[in-house]
């Protein structure tokens, strides 16, 4: 016991991160480097270089050193105005605005609003990079009489190895997995990683009846779900019928680098993709309810 997680944010009521009303924990750190990432400051871990400290207009950041002289950046949330200057300064795609949570601390947060939620979701960043913490947390939830009714879900990029999924499986109620592209090169172009392990995760979760949702991000002209529509549809159709197929529309808002040149996906483009999947027999499609 006694593990801590580095958390970017916790929100107490979400309608879009799994079934019902959920508390969502956004973990810091990701092993993908997606060009389309809307929150790149969650990708890397802060190494307490201290570069951001002086830039903070609200004096909400300070640099301390422990007994061994190791530096540590501290964030004083009560002073922070959420201006995000620190995020733009950070050379590492990280954020000083993270917090360490132990399992008992997260359990206390959950208990504070247990009547309002159907479950919890760990998201990120990439939640599974902190898998031992997740296992401990889910275990604790499932073994507490007052919390065991809560469903425990993971929102992931699917890169976790299958044997690692096996470890969390007994405590996991369901997973939401992103499939960023169909073809290997496209996936590599967008995320910097291949998608074999994503497919392996999807297969395992589907077999174990733990795949709640597969998410396809449609980036017109960049992602390849439309050009590979027959293969994609055939793949989706062999998944269990209960799996929600969620189509996400790429939005430029918040992205950096070359993704800023990509076009946002319009409602029309989304409808077209959805219609082509429906024609090919894909059911249980979930479309976005807002387009920016």
């Amino acid at each position: 016991m006694g593990r801590v997680a580095t958390v970017n944010n916790i929100i107490n009521f979400s309608c879009v991160d799994g079934p019902g009303s959920r508390l969502v924990i956004f973990m810091q750190g990701c092993n993908f480097n997606c060009k389309n990432c809307h929150n790149p400051y969650t990708i890397d871990m802060c190494d307490s270089c201290g570069d951001c400290v002086a830039s903070c207009p609200a004096n909400a950041l300070s640099l301390t050193h422990n007994a061994q002289g190791k530096p540590k950046v501290e964030w004083h949330s009560e002073l922070c105005t959420q201006c995000d200057t620190c995020l733009s300064i950070c050379p590492k795609q990280s954020s000083p605005k993270t917090r360490q949570y132990s399992v008992p601390q997260v359990l206390a947060l959950i208990r504070k609003q247990v009547f309002f939620i159907n479950g919890i979701t760990v998201s990120g960043g990439e939640a599974t990079l902190q898998l031992p913490f997740i296992i401990e947390l889910f275990q604790a939830i499932k073994s507490s009489d007052d919390l065991s009714h809560l469903s425990c879900m993971i929102d992931s990029n699917g890169y976790l190895a299958t044997n690692a999924w096996q470890q969390v499986m007994p405590y996991l109620d369901g997973a939401m997995i992103d499939l960023k592209s169909w073809q290997q090169q496209t996936h590599r172009y967008i995320t910097n990683r291949d998608n074999h392990r994503v497919f392996a995760s999807l297969k395992l979760l589907a077999e174990q009846d733990k795949l709640y949702e597969i998410r396809l991000l449609h980036i017109p002209g960049v992602s390849d779900f439309d050009s590979e529509i027959d293969a994609v549809a055939a793949y989706l159709k062999q998944l269990p019928a209960s799996v929600r197929v969620k189509l996400n529309a790429f939005q430029q808002h918040g992205v950096t680098g070359e993704a800023r040149l990509w076009e946002s996906c319009t409602e029309q483009q989304m409808q077209t993709l959805a219609a082509r999947l429906t024609e090919r027999g894909v059911a249980n499609l979930i479309l976005p309810n807002v387009y920016l």
């Binding site: 389309n36 809307h38 918040g254």
Partner: peptide, 8 residues
């Protein structure tokens, strides 16, 4: 509040 900040 976090959308699209946390929509990957």
């Amino acid at each position: 509040e976090l959308t699209p900040a946390h929509s990957k």
